[in-house]
Nucleic acid binder design. Structure first.
Lengths: 182, 182
DNA sequence: GTCTATAAAAAGATAGAC
DNA sequence: GTCTATCTTTTTATAGAC
């Protein structure tokens, strides 16, 4: 628990990276082993099956969300603004974990789908006290989901999304805050 | 062109249904053939490869979007309200096609990802004249994306989303209209 | 802990009969 | 147009050496 072998984390990183960059189809045990610089046998020492690999990635997501909830609660610019802003993925650990687990969910993993649901519920709990009512909560959460969705589609295939950034993002956040403030 | 064989549509329906219900991983040629009630050879007469099957599904999506844009433009309750409302998937043909193609995109299909981008651009063009500015357009589009995203996660694995419906949905739409009206 | 070698199953695709 | 039979490649997993 306290000092998991580096190789194990390296394998998990490789699995995550392939899921993000090339999709669920490409994330085979073979490809993961190659990318992590170990043999297939070496990989299977750390993760006895592909299910175990997926479970470990989901576990990683849960841990990162614990941390994220702390960050959200402590955001100086306000919970809603921070939450929206952090829904644009920038490639930090939690962004990567969410993307990778979403790919698993689309591939058909029920465990991944359930984990995403749970994460969304926890985020909802963090935002709820900071918005006017349920309609406002829905607006904020769905906007966040929309940002995630676009990153999801972009990461695999496309040059870049038409997602707002800079002044456009500030304008969007201002609009949402005005519409949802208690 | 005018009267494509029924069997061909049946195969495509089966492919779509498996993608929606069980994810990309489960949508093998074998499973599709079985579900469509034909042999693998029979399937391959209609679609010479899995790529051809995917291409046909993407083509179906494009056709359904053509129709959808007409419906949006003609919506009596207003373009924005109709667009948001129709972003909650109810299992009609376009909902199913969007879901299935999204699964392919997550699996790693670049063609599917590109098609989804194109669809989103076309929807943006339909909504743009009916909102105040770019921030408002982003809000409406991202909200719609968020609704799609939730349906995507639910369809495979979960009992039901916490998505707004009935009065809650009306409240959300009213909120968005007020925040985005020109 | 990590490797090689190998088995076992599944997936995509071809050939040719009917 | 649809089938059966077969082939190839890929993918997951096991066994046992180092």
């Amino acid at each position: 628990m306290s000092r998991p072998p580096h190789a194990r984390q390296g394998v998990l990183d490789a699995f995550e990276a392939i899921l993000i960059a090339d999709g669920e189809r490409a994330a085979t045990m073979d490809a993961v082993a190659r990318s992590a610089g170990v043999s297939k046998g070496g990989l299977l020492y750390h993760f006895a099956s592909k299910d175990a690999l997926e479970a470990a990635l989901i576990e990683r997501l849960r841990t990162l969300v614990d941390q994220d909830l702390d960050d959200i609660a402590a955001a100086p610019e306000g919970v809603v603004a921070y939450f929206i802003r952090s829904s644009i993925m920038l490639g930090n650990p939690i962004d990567r974990a969410v993307t990778a687990v979403s790919r698993l969910a689309q591939g058909g993993s029920a465990a991944a789908g359930a984990a995403l649901h749970e994460v969304r519920e926890r985020w909802a709990g963090a935002v709820r006290p900071h918005v006017r009512d349920d309609a406002a909560l829905n607006l904020v959460l769905l906007l966040s989901d929309g940002l995630y969705f676009n990153n999801l589609i972009d990461d695999t295939s496309m040059p870049a999304a038409a997602l707002p950034s800079g002044d456009d993002l500030d304008a969007l956040i201002a609009l949402v805050r005005a519409a949802t403030a208690p």
